[in-house]
Design a protein around this nucleic acid. Structure first.
Lengths: 216, 216
DNA sequence: TAGATTGTTAATCGATTAACAATC
DNA sequence: TAGATTGTTAATCGATTAACAATC
């Protein structure tokens, strides 16, 4: 039952690589190649696949289309996932414009901000008043939100989102959110990610250890 | 020797909480309280501290100032770390404006972009032509870079950075960078982080497992 | 002292890796 | 067939947790 965070991240990376390979006209792939392209060992690739019941051909490798389809199903990419952006400040509006989401077929359907001056659109996404977020989530049955509001209001806003029916939050506010057990929170703390890099750079200067390639 | 990625992330979170507590006038703290504030068990807190040789008082807990100082040293916060932003598009310029970095005493000293039209400043940070990045890094002995350039040029740019002396990269481009062993790369893939949330939301709908609080 | 807390050693757990069997 | 590749089972490794000793 090892669908750990890391494992899911690897699936996402496989998917991305596979889509690129398909684009280039490839039809089949070996665990070897896929591993090399994603900085994962070939054994790990096969283990991941076998964990989710994806099988290949003993000598012929895996069929790319088949892999993509299976991974799409696992990741829930077969259904369209509506995502809202909560907070349309610097970070929020940059994220709303971020090409990487579109590329992965992620659909940001609306943005919300407390500042009434922030009306209009960002990257063709309508910015609404945050007061309307509860109703919007309810009516449109949105399950996933990106939270890019100031740390001071993040907890409060998250409670509104959860009460409206949000089941998963990608949180950019640097606070530990308290949410009900059933709600998934993935905290992306940009400062911490950078501090991590700084730590390892310093640690090496101080002559400790030799590791490489941290994170996904 | 368990200074794992997770462990360092926890140190960063402890530090943040401790600074907030200090601000509020607190002087001492128990592993209990600190754990609760950072969503970590008290045992884990003490284990982390003992790993780095930080000790408290058998009944009196830990002195906050002492903790902050020790953690600062471990994380390399005692020396000023110059960081450059490479790529000043949507994401790059939003990151340059991001308050969370300042709050953690992270100093973005310059930004670079390939588009000559992107002259001027963002958040009081000068945007230079990317052609000058090699020289800038050499002269100013910069060790850490944030990479927010398009995926297509990320590898190429990273090679320039490394050749100029960059030792750590926080990479926002959704590609697997190939860098020498001695260079630290921390990949932040925003799409993958969001896909992770979507996966767990779906997985629960499908009636699997009950986990909570993923990521840092 | 009794109770609360730190800090360490041992046990557990989970994920990765190694070894190898299966087979195209 | 021989070689290459998948896929599984067992071994290893590392991190977290449990148990408990130390002590203020």
């Amino acid at each position: 039952m090892s669908e750990s965070r890391n494992c899911i991240q690897r699936l996402c990376r496989y998917r991305r690589t596979l889509k690129d390979l398909k684009e280039l006209g490839y039809v089949k792939i070996f665990s070897d190649n896929l591993g090399e392209a994603t900085a994962v060992t070939a054994v790990q690739v096969r283990k991941d696949f076998s964990l989710f019941g994806i099988s290949g051909n003993k000598k012929g490798g895996y069929i790319i289309d088949n892999l993509i389809e299976k991974i799409n199903y696992i990741l829930g990419k077969d259904e369209i996932q509506k995502v809202i952006m909560v907070g349309a400040g610097n970070l929020g509006s940059a994220l709303a414009r971020y090409r990487g989401f579109e590329k992965e077929d992620i659909n940001i359907v609306a943005a919300f901000d407390a500042d009434p001056a922030k009306q209009g659109k960002v990257n063709n996404i309508q910015i609404h008043n945050i007061k309307d977020v509860f109703e919007y989530v309810k009516i449109n049955k949105v399950k996933v939100a990106i939270l890019a509001v100031p740390a001071t209001v993040a907890q409060e806003v998250s409670e509104i989102l959860v009460s409206a029916g949000i089941k998963g939050i990608l949180n950019f506010a640097p606070v530990t959110l308290r949410v009900p057990e059933k709600v998934v929170v993935n905290n992306v703390s940009l400062a911490i990610e950078l501090e991590n890099v700084i730590y390892y750079v310093n640690a090496r200067h101080r002559g400790e250890k030799q590791k490489n390639e941290h994170g996904a």
